[in-house]
Design a binder for these strands. Structure first.
Lengths: 219, 219
DNA sequence: TAGGTGCGGATTGTATACAATGATGTCGCG
DNA sequence: CGCGACATCATTGTATACAATCCGCACCTA
């Protein structure tokens, strides 16, 4: 039996996670310059591990590093919304098809998260809500039993999270989202890939358009 | 008018490209340990930029870094073949659909590469052949006009290249591959997304099975 | 006043140096 | 003879230090 170790996370992983989280949640804003000295001081490390972390984030598409000019949080442009959702839909569709073939069942976890989400909505905890959303989709992806697919989707999700934090505000988050989640989980558990995919498509396009609406409204 | 600069590539980029290439072509074999001192000496840099390069490659899934134990070329397992091609097909299908919607025309470049490929086959230059293959598919992906999709596919291609170098030998590379390429390019140029996709699917499954055959034959 | 030129501070890039960690082999003990 | 503790070595992790580059500003010139 596997026993959870107290802190499997190394210091470097903690650093990169903290940096990533700061970008995903908009704490570091798109286009913002990331000064190595400042960040190193802020996280209590030297510039060496910090630079390594920035290189990783560069690979994940979260920052852009220009030679001798430093790192900048990759800017988000409206075109990204459509492009990202296009890729995401293709990947998540594949994930659902494979998961349905296996009759993977994530209904329990989904219901649990649904409950948490309700509380988060009441508390107005948007970040928590986004995390629950991502966790649900990550679990669905994992149900495909294809690690490469999971990794690819994870990369897309990083960007999606940035979109959400940048453009969605409290009030625009609709609780019906979780009805979709439950419906998809149920379809997958019954092996109904086509049904799950149809519902997913509606779900994603709605989510995408909500972001586009907010974006247009903001100017 | 744009004037091409002699070397837009910075030193760091050259380093990371060299490292990546060494892994993709199998020069550094799957599972092989990557000692920082040795690599730094080999590439004529110190360990600082080398470590940054390794972090990037870790993000690309080409190496695995264990804390205090160093980097290893990510091993390839048979399961990877099926998983990677599954993801690749989903992404490339999307790319073709979008490219066909735009009536993107890559026939000329394809024919040019076909010629080069013929010469490479005669010369037995497998690496050149693989590069031409990748370049063709990269151009097709770019024709989707979706940078995120291109990036996602690029990541898959890194792994595919590793599979090819690891499992394909001279003689198993079939020239008919380029007939498929031309047919797909033509279908896309005519806006026939469905036709292009159908041919692509055959093309990829054949390519995948050729790798699986070689893999089974070897071991 | 517009534009170019050179200086100075700010910031990044990388080498060197040392600390921390993990692997290896040897010795002693049961 | 097997196994475990310890010392030693190889290797990674990171801080410090300095060199290289870039950017902004003042100044000069036409």
């Amino acid at each position: 039996m596997a026993i959870a170790l107290p802190r499997p996370e190394t210091r470097f992983e903690a650093l990169i996670d903290a940096l990533r989280e700061a970008i995903l949640t908009g704490r570091f804003r798109p286009g913002e310059r990331l000064l190595q000295d400042d960040l190193a001081a802020a996280f209590g490390v030297s510039r060496i591990p910090l630079r390594e972390a920035l290189r990783r984030l560069e690979g994940e598409g979260l920052v852009v590093i220009s030679p001798n000019r430093g790192a900048v949080v990759r800017p988000l442009i409206p075109k990204d919304v459509v492009e990202l959702y296009d890729v995401r839909l293709a990947l998540e569709t594949l994930a659902l098809r494979r998961a349905a073939e296996r009759y993977a069942d994530v209904r329990e976890a989904t219901r649990g998260r649904h409950g948490e989400a309700r509380r988060a909505i009441e508390a107005g905890a948007l970040t928590t809500l986004f995390h629950l959303d991502r966790d649900y989709h990550a679990e669905l992806a994992a149900a495909s039993d294809n690690p490469h697919l999971v990794a690819a989707l994870d990369g897309q999700w990083s960007q999606i999270m940035r979109l959400m934090h940048a453009y969605l505000r409290a009030g625009t988050y609709m609780p019906e989202v979780w009805d979709d989640h439950e419906a998809i989980a149920t379809a997958v558990a019954h092996g109904d890939g086509a049904g799950a995919i149809a519902r997913l498509e509606r779900h994603l396009l709605l989510s995408r358009d909500r972001i586009l609406d907010q974006l247009r409204a903001a100017g």
